[in-house]
Every structure is written in C-alpha cells, then in structure tokens.
Simulated scan of single mutants.
Amino acid sequence: MLVCGLVVMALVWRDTDAAGLWGGFGLALLPVPFLVGAFHWLDALAPRPWRALAFAFGWGACAATLFALLANGLLVELLTDHPASLRTSQADLLELTVIAPVVEETAKAAGVLLLFLHLPREFNGVLSGIVAGGITGAGFAFTENVVYLGHAVARDQVEGVGGVDSATTVTFFVRIVIGPFAHPVFTVLAGIGLGLAVTWARDRPRWRRALPLAGLGAAMVLHSVWNASASMTLTGFVLVYALLMVPVFCLLCWLAVRERDQQLRAVRRTLPQYAAAGWFGAAEPAALGSLRSRSLSRRLARQRHGSAGLRAVVSYQTAATSLAVLRDRAEHGLDAPYFADAERDLLLRVGRHRALAAASIEAAASSGTTAVPGEPPARTAVATG
C-alpha cells in the first residue's frame, strides 16, 4: 500500500507540480479527522483492532485509488479511443457515470472483503460492515480529493485566479463542504450487504451470495447518479443532493445508531448470565448497557485512579461489550467455531481490569444513570450457588 501511495503521489506531481500536490494534500486532509472520528465513535463500544481500521483506510487511500486511476484511464481509452488523463476537465460522461462507479466501488469493496476474510471474528455484523466500508471510503475520498484539489490549485496558479471564483474554492466547496461523506456512503452500502450476509443470511446460501452483490450494486448506482449530477444544471444537482443523497445519508445514520444501540441491548440482556457466575457485580450489566453510565464510570475512574483507572475502565467496558456481542451471536447460532476461545480471552481481559474498574462502574450504577428510555428499570439480584 505504501508503494501504491507513492505511485499516486508521483502521478499527481507529474500533472500538477509540487504546489498542486501539497496544496491539494493539505486541503484534502481537513475532513479526514472528522470522517474517521465519526466511524470510530460508532465503533467505540466494541472497537475493531486499530490495525484493521488502519488497513481499511490505507487500502482506500492507496491501493484502491491507484487501481481506479489506472483502470479508469485504460477503460476510457479502450472504449472511446481517446487517451485518458487525471485532469478532471477531460473526463467524459461515460467515465463519470459508468466506468468510475463500477471500477472504484469494486476496488473499495475488495478491501472490505479482505478484512472479512482475514478477521472473521471482528467482522460480526452490519455495524462492522458500516465501519469498515466507511473508513475505506474515507481513505479513498482523501486521495481523490488530493487529485481534484491539486489540479484546481495548479490551474489557478497558471491562470492567476484567486478568491471565491477560483477553481480551488469551487472544488473545495463541492468536495469538502457539500460531499465529504459521498465515498464513505457508497462503500458503506457494500459493507452493509456483506454484514447482512454474515448474520441474517448465514444459513441461506443464495442470499449469502446475493446480498454482498446487491450492496455493491447499490453503491455503484448511487455513485453513478451522484457523478451524473455534476454535469447537470445547478437545479438538477440540488435536487439529486436534497432528494437522494441527504435521505440516504440520514437513513444510514439511523441504521448505524440502531446497530450501536443493539450492542447495548445485548449487554443488558446477556451479561446477567455472567454476573450470576460471579464475573460481574449484580448491578454492572445495567451500568455497562447505558451510555450515560459508561461515561460517568470513566469520569469516576479518572478522579479516583488517574489515567491508569481510565484505561482500565475503557478496557473493561470494551471487553464486556465484546463478550455480550459474542454471546448474543452464539445464541443465534453464529461464531460457533471460535466461541469458546474468544469467550475465555474476553473473560481473562475482564478479570485483568476488574480491580481498578469495577468500583467505578458500580458507583455509576448506584447513581441512577442506568435507566433506558422505553425499558423497565433493570432488576438486580444476588447470585447464589
């Protein structure tokens, strides 16, 4: 991926010179912390390994981008007999609406598939697909923004244009302000298809094959419509943005938050079994299943034990949530091949951090912050036997 990234930088440098490359790089970097932070927040309850997220971003930013640049150019030249260029002004309608969506979404989805094949234990549902697809798309969007913004900066320098009418300002507004989530949204659709295949269609072979393809197809179609809107009038672009992109984005946000809430429900439902066996206190499952209580636990741990206490509580909460998700999937017939080993590892992590973490979590539970809207108050019981 490092080699791929260097090759992409060399291609942009060739077309824009150093000023365009570094100007585009700096501007394209601005939305990256926001995008990555949003998906990290979704994944915070039972986070994937940081190496997996780094691979997803690197694949999108380096490998998928280089493949798309080369494949797009070759296919445009093959189908139209006109040589392709990285310069956006020379891209025609065929490349925008047919070639680019198919090539780019396939390249990005390949990274999500590789994560699933390499880390099946961590790819455990729809939320995994949303996070993996979103991070991959964010990486791809970053490098593509470097390309587009780099050409805009170089063009403005040659023409001596500046201010609000410059190509750099217009490109920055469209790609960074209006559409920073475009590529992540496209790839999230492919990730959702794979996540549904992993869970809902596990025992349905035809659906297990069809759902990832359906998610990839939806990503291609949405990408094609979004690209086509760039060649429409301003009214057409606004209609596509307001009537298609924004509703899809809101729907995916709702789905992601719903999947995150399901993790909390799994904590409240399954951890009492472990509390009865002595791994948790009687009040801890309700506290671990409440966002407010989890936040209060971290604050109390920092006040009592400093940064070491905070790290212990975060690790304890993460292990407990992962344990609950694992048990919930096992009860639905999933993760059977490695359930026992994974359960043992997570219980060992819980025990390792319990000394520093349990008191803060129990204190948060007794503060009355564990109530969940729409659910009856959690009952606590003393385990016997």
Rank of each mutant, 00 (worst) to 15 (best):
V98I: 12
L356T: 01
R155T: 14
L113M: 12
G133H: 03
R155L: 14
G125P: 05
A28Q: 07
D261E: 14
W41V: 04
R302I: 01
A138M: 01
S166E: 04
Q273M: 06
R311H: 15
V7N: 00
F34E: 02
S366W: 10
F142I: 00
P180V: 01
F123H: 01
A381K: 01
A330N: 08
S128F: 00
A197C: 07
T16R: 09
T199A: 05
L119A: 15
V126E: 02
A230Y: 11
L251D: 07
L74I: 10
L211E: 02
L79Q: 07
G162W: 08
R265Q: 12
S315Q: 13
R14D: 11
F172C: 01
L27P: 04
V350Y: 02
M220A: 09
A138D: 01
D341F: 09
R209I: 10
A63W: 11
A218C: 12
A359P: 01
L96A: 15
A275M: 10
N227Y: 06
F339E: 08
T143I: 12
S295K: 13
S307R: 14
T16H: 09
T233W: 03
L42R: 05
R265D: 13
T88G: 06
L189F: 10
L213G: 06
R349M: 12
L11M: 13
V36M: 00
F116K: 15
T235Y: 07
F57C: 09
L326M: 06
I176P: 00
S166I: 04
A68E: 02
P247W: 02
A342S: 14
F172T: 08
D92C: 04
Q262N: 13
A10R: 13
R204H: 13
S128I: 05
L2A: 14
A342Q: 13
A197H: 03
L288W: 09
A68C: 14
S128A: 15
A100L: 06
E144Y: 02
A301H: 07
L216F: 11
P33Q: 05
V240H: 11
S322M: 07
F55R: 03
A100K: 03
L6P: 01
T80L: 05
H332C: 10
V350R: 02
A276M: 10
G289W: 02
Y274F: 15
L93S: 12
G58A: 10
L94A: 09
G333V: 03
V372E: 14
N72R: 05
R304W: 14
G193A: 09
R268I: 06
D335H: 08
L93C: 01
V257M: 10
W200H: 13
G309K: 03
L222N: 01
H305T: 04
D156G: 02
L35F: 02
H332N: 13
R51A: 14
V238W: 12
P83H: 12
V158A: 13
R344D: 13
S229P: 05
L288H: 08
L79C: 09
F25C: 03
I361N: 12
L94R: 04
L334K: 07
T97W: 02
V174D: 11
V147A: 02
N227T: 07
V177D: 09
L27G: 06
A359H: 13
W207R: 12
V174L: 15
I361A: 11
V174I: 14
V325G: 03
A266F: 04
W207V: 06
L291C: 00
A61W: 00
